[in-house]
Structure formats: structure tokens, C-alpha cells
Amino acid sequence: TTQFTVHSPEQAEQWKEYAKQKGLEVHVQKKNGTWHVTIH
């Protein structure tokens, strides 16, 4: 599991796309103005 924080919805979307291409599961949670992205 990879977990990191991004600071814009655009970055979060890019990671979603990346994960989809790799066939991975991605979870994005918005918290205090940042987005926590978890890739399984």
C-alpha cells in the first residue's frame, strides 16, 4: 500500500487515472484542504 498527500484535486485525479491504468485500487480522502491518496 502506498499512501501520500497531494494538495490539489487535479493531482488526486492524475493518481486515480494512473491507478486505473495499472489495475490498482485507489482511495482518495479529502481532509483539511489536502487529499490523502492511498493506492492498494
Results as ranks from 00 to 15, higher is better:
Trp15Glu: 01
Gln29Arg: 11
Glu25Ala: 11
Thr1Glu: 08
Gly33Val: 02
Trp15Pro: 00
Thr5Lys: 07
Glu17Gln: 12
Gln14Thr: 07
Glu25Asn: 10
Thr5Asp: 07
Leu24Ile: 06
His27Asn: 08
Gln14Gly: 07
Glu17Asp: 08
Gln3Ala: 09
His40Met: 13
Lys30Ala: 10
Lys22Ile: 08
Asn32Tyr: 06
Val26Asn: 01
Thr38Met: 07
Gly23Glu: 04
Glu13Thr: 06
Glu17Asn: 09
Gln14Ile: 11
Ala12Met: 07
Pro9Thr: 09
Thr5Cys: 15
Trp15Thr: 01
Gly23Met: 04
Thr5Met: 10
Thr5Glu: 11
Gln29Val: 15
Ala12Trp: 07
Gln11Glu: 15
Val26Glu: 00
Asn32Glu: 08
Tyr18Trp: 15
His27Cys: 12
Trp15Gln: 01
His27Gln: 09
Lys30Phe: 15
Gln3Arg: 13
Lys31Ala: 08
Pro9Leu: 15
Trp15Lys: 01
Asn32Ser: 05
Thr38Pro: 00
Thr34Glu: 13
Gln29Asp: 08
His7Tyr: 14
Thr34His: 11
Gln3Trp: 13
Thr38Arg: 05
Glu17Lys: 10
Asn32Val: 03
Val37Arg: 00
Leu24Trp: 14
Phe4Met: 05
Lys16Phe: 09
Lys20Cys: 06
Ile39Phe: 06
Lys22Trp: 13
Phe4Thr: 03
Glu13Pro: 01
His7Thr: 12
Val28Ser: 02
Thr34Met: 14
Trp15Asp: 00
Ser8Tyr: 06
Lys30Pro: 06
Gly23Asp: 04
Lys16Tyr: 11
Tyr18Leu: 05
Thr38Tyr: 08
Ser8Arg: 04
His27Ser: 11
His40Asn: 08
Gln3Met: 11
His36Lys: 07
Lys16Pro: 00
Glu17Thr: 10
Lys16Val: 15
Trp15Met: 04
Glu13Trp: 09
His40Glu: 08
Lys16Glu: 08
Tyr18Ile: 05
Ala12Pro: 01
His27Phe: 11
Lys20Ile: 10
Thr34Asn: 08
His40Ile: 14
Thr34Gly: 10
Ala12Ile: 08
Lys30Thr: 07
Glu17Tyr: 09
Val26Gly: 02
Val6Asp: 01
Tyr18Gln: 02
His27Thr: 14
Thr2Trp: 15
Val37Met: 03
Val28Cys: 00
Val28Leu: 06
Glu25His: 12
Lys22Thr: 07
Lys31Val: 15
Gln11Trp: 05
Lys31Trp: 10
His7Val: 08
Glu25Cys: 14
Glu17Trp: 10
Leu24Met: 06
His36Phe: 14
Gly33Arg: 04
Ser8Leu: 05
His7Asn: 13
Ser8Ile: 03
Val26His: 03
Glu10Trp: 10
Thr34Ser: 13
Gly23Arg: 04
Glu10Thr: 06
Thr2Gln: 12
Ser8Phe: 06
Tyr18Cys: 08
Tyr18Arg: 04
Ala19Phe: 11
Gly33Tyr: 04
Thr2His: 14
Gln3Asn: 08
Ile39Leu: 10
His36Ala: 07
Trp15Asn: 00
Gly33Ile: 02
Tyr18Asn: 02
Thr1Asp: 07
Thr2Cys: 15
Pro9Ser: 14
Lys22Met: 14
Ser8Asn: 06
Glu25Val: 13
Ala19Thr: 02
Trp15Leu: 08
Thr38His: 04
Gln11Ala: 14
Ala19Trp: 06
His36Pro: 00
His36Thr: 14
Gln14Asp: 05
Pro9Trp: 15
Lys31Met: 13
Lys22Pro: 03
Glu10Tyr: 09
Lys31Arg: 12
His27Tyr: 11
Ile39His: 00
Asn32Trp: 05
Gln3Phe: 11
Asn32Phe: 06
Asn32Thr: 03
Thr34Asp: 07
Ile39Gly: 00
Lys16Thr: 08
Glu17Ser: 09
Tyr18His: 03
Thr1Asn: 07
Val28Phe: 07
Thr34Trp: 10
Pro9Cys: 14
Thr1Lys: 11
Gln11Thr: 06
Gly33Ser: 05
Glu10Arg: 07
Thr1Gly: 09
Gln3Ser: 14
His40Leu: 13
Ala19Tyr: 11
Ile39Arg: 00
His36Asp: 05
Lys20Ser: 07
Val26Tyr: 10
Lys30Asn: 12
Glu10Asn: 05
